[in-house]
């Protein structure tokens, strides 16, 4: 009985059509598909097209003239620099946090998991404000530069000499970006590491591997695809972050403007072609990220399929 059911299912699958009972009426299927596609076109595709259409409205020449603006180039460099610091920092933080949480039991573990989600939970503007409160001239830590009897006088002197600032300067932008993008890598890795369990690590340890060897040769290779995926997402957000960075940057052209902030300024000044040209660069970065992400997923799926097939 059971085998005949299975074989009839296989027949149906082989013939490429499913039993009628599991199929919806034609009009239901087409309507649902149309709604989904229409929604995607309206909310995702159309804006993307609009960005490039606006950017090229005055022709290719105007587009490249607008891009060649020194402030714009500086904003692009600053954005890349920020991502170049924030992503490796979160790579280290994320891997260590996920490793702690997935492989060990300790008091306060659930608190740590909640803390990792905090940057997702609070508005980016609030995140920015937190850093202003901490590092601003009147802030808890920023106050140190004006303190009359500082804890380490030589450090205060050195910082003043260096004209060291966090808020309205590059360090603040990097800090805010690191904060906002913190969960991406850890969140990607925790479930992955939890499902993999600890047995392979234990096996490595009984074979005489040190903790370090176990991490590099067993743990890391097992999470590399998830890690790569997390890095890509983290990078996308680091380059695109607006809210938190907007609060701490001070919008100084050619100094503390990232690409998203630069777009806003240009737009507010009615320089639409320049604004959309800069926006198109951001969109391109996003597209490259998405392509990379798809490539990773594709390579990963192919490996899995190869494993399953053999």
């Amino acid at each position: 009985m059971a085998s005949s059911v299975v074989s009839s299912l296989q027949h149906a699958a082989a013939a490429g059509h499913r039993p009628l009972a599991t199929r919806d009426a034609d009009w239901v299927r087409y309507t649902l598909t149309a709604v989904a596609l229409g929604f995607l076109a309206l909310f995702l595709l159309l804006p993307l097209v609009a960005v490039f259409a606006e950017a090229f409205r005055r022709g290719i020449g105007a587009y490249f003239t607008a891009l060649n603006d020194p402030d714009g180039m500086h904003a692009l460099k600053l954005t890349l620099l920020t991502a170049a610091i924030a992503v490796p920092a979160n790579l280290v933080f994320g891997v260590s946090a996920a490793w702690c949480i997935a492989k060990f039991n300790f008091p306060g573990k659930s608190l740590l998991i909640t803390l990792i989600d905090l940057p997702f939970a609070v508005s980016p503007v609030i995140s920015g404000l937190i850093f202003v409160l901490l590092f601003g001239a009147q802030g808890w830590l920023g106050h140190y530069l004006d303190a009359e009897n500082p804890a380490l006088p030589w450090l205060q002197a050195w910082l003043i000499e260096q004209d060291f600032k966090v808020i309205f300067a590059v360090p603040g932008i990097v800090l805010a970006t690191v904060f906002v993008t913190f969960p991406f890598i850890a969140r990607e890795l925790i479930p992955l590491m939890q499902t993999q369990g600890n047995d392979e690590e234990y096996a490595a340890i009984t074979l005489g591997a040190s903790g370090w060897q176990t991490f590099w040769r067993v743990t890391l290779p097992n999470i590399k695809w998830g890690l790569f995926y997390g890095v890509i997402l983290c990078n996308a957000r680091a380059m695109g972050e607006f809210g938190a960075v907007s609060v701490v940057s001070g919008h100084i052209r050619g100094q503390t403007n990232t690409l998203p902030l630069h777009v806003e300024i240009l737009y507010n000044e009615y320089q639409f072609v320049a604004a959309f040209a800069a926006a198109s660069i951001l969109a391109l970065l996003a597209l490259v990220t998405l392509v990379l992400k798809s490539l990773v997923e594709w390579a990963h799926a192919r490996r899995h399929a190869a494993d399953a097939a053999s």
């Binding site: 047995d199 234990y202 096996a203 340890i205 005489g208 591997a209 290779p221």
Partner: peptide
């Protein structure tokens, strides 16, 4: 002594082979 220094060979229930 930690596991690595005891000179034990351990075979896990689900083998725990290094999959990569």
């Amino acid at each position: 002594l930690p596991a690595g220094k005891r000179g034990v060979g351990f075979v896990f229930q689900h083998y725990a082979l290094f999959r990569h």
